[in-house]
Amino acid sequence: MDVSTLEIETKKLIDRFHAQKPIRSWSMIISIFGDCVAPRGGELWMGNITEIMQMIGVSSGVVRTAMSRLASDGWLERTRIGRNSFYRLTNMGREAFDQATPRIYARGLTKGNGSWITAILSDGAGRAERRERLMDQGFGAIAPNVLIKPDNGQALPKSSEQIIYMCSSAPDDKAARLAKQAWNLTSLQQGYVEFIENYRGLGELLSEMDGNYSAIPTEVALVVRIMLIHDLRRLVLRDPELPQQALPDNWAGSVARELAANIYSKLKDRGEIWLDSNARNVEGNLPPLAPAFFERFQPL
């Protein structure tokens, strides 16, 4: 395969990112920290952040604005040494990444136990806010005061005067109807279909290389890897991770995850070479990868 063909596919990904309005540069920086920085100590020199974002076609001024927003929102904190700035994940940012990472890098469908966690909201002040917080945690609403979430083995939350939690079950046919009522699976399915369309050609190109990935420029591998995870992250964090029996037929999420896993496995090492050679934190070179990195996209 001609490497220039891969570079053309990479440019298509970047062009699609810039076609989104508005361009959420801060969200791309979150993807960079989650995929590349968090497993290597969680801190990166501002010059590296700017360089990576410029590879994606984002100017340094836009990057500075985005970094300021992420710092003010509590995701990142800055250390300044002379004229150099270094950004590190805050405790809040680290906790959010730790919760999201297993979902983003999962491979295959969740093995649910067929049960559901039901949350019943009491009436009164603050109900709308409590409902919104539950939906941010993956619950879907089947009534104004009743929300459900698949029980994938997590502990049942403790009930309070405002929210009562209980476990329930439903036959497979009813589970599918409940899921359709509680979540906009049509929109999510379309998102997965578009992801497959956008990355299928790239996956085929990499397969044609038959393991000879050393010809791929490290900066190209890094950019594609970041774009891949950025696009996947925006889908899977909206995904309620329903068990098979609650999903519609021909669910594209499984295909999208498998495609992402195959592409990522072929590019991750070349991307790490770029980070080894170029990325810096306060102490110099980034530390070695955390062991959890090697669990990404492993079969469930």
Results as ranks from 00 to 15, higher is better:
residue 181 Q to K: 15
residue 176 A to T: 12
residue 34 G to H: 00
residue 189 Q to H: 09
residue 250 N to Y: 03
residue 119 A to Q: 03
residue 27 S to L: 12
residue 66 A to R: 06
residue 230 H to W: 03
residue 21 K to I: 09
residue 267 L to M: 08
residue 193 V to I: 13
residue 264 Y to P: 03
residue 117 I to Y: 07
residue 39 P to K: 08
residue 64 R to P: 02
residue 159 S to K: 11
residue 174 K to G: 01
residue 225 R to C: 09
residue 134 L to K: 05
residue 179 A to C: 06
residue 246 A to R: 12
residue 136 D to A: 07
residue 204 E to N: 15
residue 262 N to I: 02
residue 67 M to C: 02
residue 146 V to I: 11
residue 55 M to Q: 14
residue 40 R to Y: 03
residue 191 G to Q: 08
residue 223 V to P: 00
residue 283 E to H: 10
residue 128 A to E: 02
residue 223 V to L: 08
residue 274 W to T: 05
residue 80 R to C: 11
residue 151 D to K: 12
residue 68 S to D: 13
residue 203 G to F: 07
residue 12 K to Y: 00
residue 215 A to K: 10
residue 21 K to T: 15
residue 261 A to H: 11
residue 299 P to D: 13
residue 254 S to R: 13
residue 236 V to D: 05
residue 109 L to Q: 13
residue 257 R to H: 11
residue 299 P to M: 13
residue 164 I to K: 12
residue 26 W to R: 13
residue 158 K to N: 00
residue 241 E to S: 06
residue 226 I to A: 09
residue 260 A to V: 09
residue 48 N to E: 10
residue 279 A to S: 11
residue 283 E to L: 07
residue 17 F to C: 08
residue 206 L to D: 05
residue 249 D to S: 14
residue 187 S to Q: 14
residue 180 K to P: 00
residue 292 A to G: 13
residue 119 A to D: 01
residue 295 E to L: 14
residue 68 S to E: 10
residue 261 A to V: 00
residue 227 M to K: 12
residue 242 L to W: 03
residue 280 R to P: 02
residue 267 L to Q: 04
residue 286 L to N: 09
residue 176 A to Q: 14
residue 139 F to N: 10
residue 201 G to R: 14
residue 15 D to C: 04
residue 88 R to K: 15
residue 5 T to P: 01
residue 191 G to P: 05
residue 153 G to Y: 01
residue 16 R to C: 02
residue 214 S to Q: 14
residue 276 D to S: 03
residue 55 M to V: 11
residue 250 N to F: 05
residue 239 D to A: 13
residue 60 S to L: 02
residue 147 L to A: 09
residue 101 T to H: 08
residue 228 L to I: 08
residue 119 A to C: 03
residue 17 F to H: 09
residue 238 R to N: 07
residue 237 L to W: 00
residue 241 E to Q: 14
